[in-house]
Amino acid sequence: MILHLHFGAPQPEPVYRRLLDLVGEFTPLAQALPPDAALADVSGSTRYFGRDATGLAALIRMRAAALHGLDLTVGIGPNPLLARLAAHRGEPGAIRTVPDDPEAVTRFLAGLPAAALPGVGPATARTLASYGLRTADRIAATPLLTLQRILGAAAGRELRERAAGIDPTRVTAGAPPRTLDAEHCFGHDEPDAARRRAALTHLTEQLGARLRDERQTCRALTLTVLYADRSTTTRTRTLSEPTAHSPRLRAEAHSLHGSLGLQRARVRSLALRAGELRAAASTPRQLAFGPDDDRARRIEAAADRARARFGPGAVRPASTAGMTEPETRTPGRLPAEGERRGLRRGGARAA
């Protein structure tokens, strides 16, 4: 059985690593899902500890509360997808289990909103709703060819499998996957939505350029908003396919920002994180019919060559003119005080 452990909120890296070490005391098959979750395969641990998966989850929750003051939410299922859905379906601070039984899985997925499935964002959910496909069970009962006509071949097949509770992935032990971050701090608490969108455009241009320079793609994008009262809001979106294409990243970032409804909010800083990185050479890309996509990618490649020759600010969208170019940090090295001030002003960094 697979445990999806949600830590309640993004955790600082030292705390997050201690939480991973705690999970590692119960199974060597623990996979980091930074900044606020982890997966654990406890199939081989139940006999050793003399507890079932629910008992191990309760023990992990108790130790996390005692050592770190965190009230974990744990979803248990026969695969990572169902464990994640169980963790997020209901109130936080509980243990929820999906039994390894086809009928139980069908009952669990019945009535589950389509938007709760990984990879289904607001636009995809609206498209599915226009065809009457608002729940996972309706999607699972839809012929595959119909879904592929609506969403495309790869996306339609993947969505139908998820709606049926099928997930062939395994828990992969290892360190937290590498991420790329970019942050912009405003000179004053910014109430203007147009200026915030321009800052997001600037951040996505930098993330896209860094991803392409390092021949990486990302599958998840996380937006963190810091307000004038120092409270924060964090939203993460799983992309329908891995990408390093700046226009795609920009559209997702603007969509995340728009979904927050920050009409009168005073924002101190915006941060974007590209997560679930993978090598671009091994990443498939859904082909688009028509010249627009290829033309945009050729222009993007030309802009990358100009930046490599003349500097990172050589080519940029007009709306970002005047914004400071981000500072960078080498992975695994702590920045000096002067660098930390540069990062706070608006930097991209590798973590």
Rank of each mutant, 00 (worst) to 15 (best):
D293N: 01
A306M: 15
L287E: 12
P326N: 10
A318G: 07
A314N: 03
A274H: 04
G332F: 02
A274S: 10
S246P: 15
R278T: 09
R266F: 00
T324G: 08
A265H: 10
R278G: 14
L287H: 11
G346R: 07
R333W: 02
P317S: 04
E325H: 05
H257N: 10
R295E: 10
L270K: 08
A288K: 08
L334K: 14
A306V: 15
A265I: 02
L272I: 10
L334G: 14
R309N: 03
S255D: 11
G338H: 13
T233D: 11
P335A: 08
S319K: 01
R268S: 12
V315T: 14
E241G: 09
S240L: 04
G261F: 03
G338Y: 06
T320Y: 02
R285Q: 10
R266N: 02
A253L: 00
A251F: 02
P247L: 07
A288S: 14
T232K: 08
E241L: 00
A303H: 14
D293F: 00
S246M: 06
A271W: 01
G258L: 03
R268C: 07
P326L: 06
A280M: 13
S259F: 03
S246C: 10
F310A: 12
L260Q: 04
P331K: 04
T238S: 14
G322I: 05
D293W: 00
R316V: 01
T328I: 01
D294Q: 14
T324Q: 09
R333K: 08
S319N: 03
S269G: 14
T238L: 14
P242R: 01
D293R: 05
A336T: 13
L262T: 07
A280Y: 11
D294A: 15
R235S: 10
A308H: 08
